[in-house]
Nucleic acid binder design. Structure first.
Lengths: 335, 335
DNA sequence: CTGTTAGCGCGTTCAC
DNA sequence: GTGAACGCGCTAACAG
């Protein structure tokens, strides 16, 4: 385990007591210049590195926050993680990442382990932990929940308005003159998926377009699901000129399905995605998508958790601003 | 910090000594059935969770291994991380991820911090740490280096043969009848990039095709670089019928650049990538690419680090097997 | 099988 | 300013 050279060794070499070294290192009390020098020299002579485990035990704080993602293999989560990491570094906290794999049992396990490791706070990105479980496992440490909302008042929730995002996407299509607009939905039991569907329906209604359930196919937010959904849509034979995919990964799948059938985007069909993943600027054609500033949200989450840890009130979230990024996968229908 | 209920509280409630509880929990010594029951009941009555920090301090082992990635936002690293995570879980170790951002100073900092946290072992994924630095920071804990090689004998290196991979890619193109084959290289100072270039040149030579430096443009392993490189290649006016991109991200960029100019893949130009990122099955057209079993390598890394930690010899690496995945971005040239 | 006694390395009283 | 002593929660000898 870590180093073998301890604070005590440093103290002995410097001819002072361990408390003096400790105080010097933490800067809590003034130390005389000559001792400072002696300590400094023996520190790098011995190549001393403080044992964070011991420090954590003694102080009851570890200067780390646990970040639970669901899936390491996902641009979506990665953006959020990156944001949290960025934000934390500025505050001298370190992130330790674990992943819950969308499995509540796994999530609970990881959360317990994080707590046992003495993290000072926890950031949960999405996931399916129920409030009661979260409450039970969060042993008094502050928690920030990203991407969804919890009724618990101990947890600070930070998320986007998926309903609004979906409205923007569909409205864009409507404004381009599309009337037959299909929808590839997300996993049926997920809040954000439901919200996006609701946005789709409401915007259609608002535009005076009748909802046609033959025009929605369920995807699951991953590429293969997008392929399947698109094929189903096409096979049903109901005509449509545009598709709104519940997320970009589904959209990628849909693109491939269309490509296979010789359908050209946006000439034959317009496509809008959701998430604006990094890759969406580089697919063929570049994808029009609803951008959620995930990375920024991650930074906010970091700020919030640090504030909470230090007993301050988390700053009011400024952004949550969604934006439709128009690229080349959508076009106006000739009048 | 974590829970407030301690081992001692449990012991008191159960009417036994702390050591008995400790022994029961760790299973190192037999404990009488009635005490077991008493302990069990008081554990969940109190909702006791062991304090891993204290345990770590006492045992000198934390059952965690530090994993340093370079960039969270990269499918490449994510695959590797996922593999390591998978592998570790089976061994009851937990991964804590940090990222070095391809910056040696950052890497050194993170490594120090990991050591301070008392990780039992470290897995480094790529990165640019020099041997001397690695040696200095790895305070006696075992280390596994993924994706590149170190001369240090304390570190167990696990990587792929990039030269071989490049040869396969180019050979494929040659076999399809291509003679004018362009190359989009990686960052000039990176070992794997050099190896791929070498594979490209050697395979060409072997096929009796003269090397033409006007046919290589330097990318940087990310999409924008691929776009630029492809444009340069095209602007030079030197004809070519195929391109080997140093990695998939560059290939994606190249695809977009061609799309913009109305060049159709593979009708006009064939394209081969390297890495076989998950997305490569879903781009348009699906990309022929050299697959490196990164996830498997990650699992091997996990096995190796655990073996090292437990004083065994790491199993000899079985795979490192590269494979060319032929999809739809390459076609045979008419004879 | 089980309780008692020491630490693990560091922060933090409390005196001087 | 500075040192001595104690404690964070747990495991590991040491005795029974």
């Amino acid at each position: 385990m870590s180093s073998n050279v301890t604070l005590e060794a440093v103290a002995r070499l410097a001819g002072v007591s361990t408390s003096t070294v400790s105080r010097y290192l933490s800067g809590t009390h003034p130390v005389s210049p000559d001792k400072k020098a002696a300590i400094d020299s023996s520190i790098d002579q011995l190549n001393y590195r403080p044992n964070l485990v011991a420090r954590g035990l003694a102080k009851g704080r570890t200067m780390t926050v646990g970040v639970m993602t669901q899936e390491i293999l996902s641009s979506f989560f990665n953006e959020a993680m990156r944001g949290v990491e960025d934000g934390l570094i500025g505050h001298n906290y370190e992130a330790i990442f674990v992943s819950g794999h969308w499995d509540p049992a796994d999530e609970a396990r990881r959360l317990t382990s994080l707590m046992g490791r003495g993290v000072d706070g926890v950031v949960l990105i999405m996931g399916g932990l129920e409030d009661s479980v979260m409450a039970r496992h969060a042993n008094g440490v502050p928690m920030v929940l990203m991407g969804r909302h919890s009724a618990l008042k101990q947890v600070h929730s930070l998320s986007f308005d998926h309903y609004d995002g979906a409205c923007r996407a569909v409205r864009h299509l409507v404004e381009l003159g599309h009337k037959r607009i299909a929808f590839i939905s997300g996993p049926p039991d997920r809040f954000d998926a439901d919200e996006r569907l609701r946005g789709y329906r409401d915007t259609l209604a608002q535009a005076g377009i009748a909802f046609d359930d033959q025009l929605v196919a369920s995807g699951n937010y991953v590429e293969p699901g997008g392929v399947t959904a698109m094929n189903i849509l096409l096979d049903r034979g109901r005509p449509f000129t545009a598709v709104f995919a519940g997320n970009d990964d589904s959209a990628y799948g849909a693109m491939l399905a269309m490509h296979r059938r010789g359908i050209v985007i946006p000439r034959d069909i317009s496509l809008v995605g959701y998430d604006d993943l990094p890759h969406s600027s580089y697919c063929i054609p570049p994808l029009t998508s609803v951008r959620q500033p995930l990375r920024e949200l991650g930074r906010e989450a970091a700020n919030a958790i640090v504030a909470l840890i230090e007993g301050r009130k988390p700053p009011r979230s400024a952004l949550t601003r969604l934006e439709l990024i128009v690229r080349e996968s959508t076009r106006a229908l000739p009048a």
